[in-house]
Computed example of a mutant assay.
Amino acid sequence: MTQLLTSLHDEQGQLTTDMADEAWIARFDQLADRGYVIIPDFLPSDEVTALYRYTQSLEENDWSLAGVGREHNHTVNTRVRSDHIRWLQPAIAAEAVYLNTMDELRVRLNRRLFMGLFDYECHLARYQAGAFYQKHLDAFKGRSNRVLTTVFYLNPEWSADDGGELVIYGSRGQVLETILPQQNTLVVFLSEVFVHEVKTAHRERFSITGWFRHNTSNAARIDPQT
């Protein structure tokens, strides 16, 4: 498949990406029709390779054990999930490249589907051998500002024997998709609709999980991250 993004460099030499509207129209329609979409070859190969190498270069103290829930309901429960995460920050050049790409996608989604997406938050996820994430929803109706979940895979040469699949379930509990975490694949789905899980990984697995959000700030409270 032709890559959906083309690489550019800005005046400072920082790698950026530019999306061609025509390449995304069918993908937008698929997301609108069924609530999720799987996009192979999301980034130029050199960009995804750079992200993977950057992730591998991180030190142990750059990662935190992932928790469940948000704000005052946030807890760590390794019986539910056992991955480690690192929130991406725009001040770090290697992380800003991906954040800029996803902000451009946010603009395109709003233009095509009128979704009113306000911002995007995401983290690197590291699943060591034996790590998993049990069935869950990323958002509950009326209780979260998360609208769309995105998962982007970084590992090259991932096989079925390596595990770590993302399973997306339908409203009756039926399996809709079992997605092997192959490098440069982006999965996007409605956060309030689809129960999903990450099967046990049998070797170290890296991905970027994120959420496009609505703005629920008010005069007394700033919209939280995480």
Rank of each mutant, 00 (worst) to 15 (best):
K141C: 10
W158V: 08
V193A: 14
Y133L: 01
T209M: 04
L88C: 06
S45D: 13
R53G: 08
Y120C: 06
W158M: 08
F194M: 03
Q128L: 12
E121H: 08
R108M: 12
N73K: 14
G130H: 05
H202Q: 15
N77A: 08
K135Q: 00
P224S: 13
T149L: 05
N77I: 00
R108Y: 09
R172I: 08
V187C: 11
I179P: 10
T2E: 15
R34C: 08
L105C: 06
I222G: 13
R81K: 01
T150H: 04
N73S: 15
R27C: 13
R108A: 15
E95N: 02
S57I: 01
L51A: 08
Q12M: 08
D138T: 00
A26T: 14
L124R: 02
T75Y: 15
G116R: 02
K199A: 12
F189Y: 04
L4G: 06
N155G: 11
V76R: 15
V48R: 05
R106E: 07
G13A: 03
S82Y: 11
G13Y: 05
E11G: 11
L190D: 14
V193K: 12
Q56Y: 02
F28W: 05
G163P: 03
Q182W: 09
S207F: 02
G130T: 10
Y54C: 06
F194D: 01
T75L: 15
M115C: 07
N100K: 13
E59P: 05
M115H: 10
D83F: 02
F114I: 07
R126D: 02
N77G: 01
P44Q: 11
A93P: 14
I92Y: 07
P224M: 07
R205Y: 10
L51N: 03
A219H: 15
G116H: 02
T78R: 14
Y98M: 06
F152M: 12
P40M: 10
I222F: 12
N215V: 08
Y54N: 05
K199W: 07
P90M: 05
L99Y: 06
L43M: 14
T16N: 12
R111P: 03
D83M: 04
N61Y: 06
E59I: 05
R79A: 12
D21I: 11
S207G: 01
V187T: 14
R143S: 12
V193M: 11
E121W: 03
W87G: 04
W158N: 07
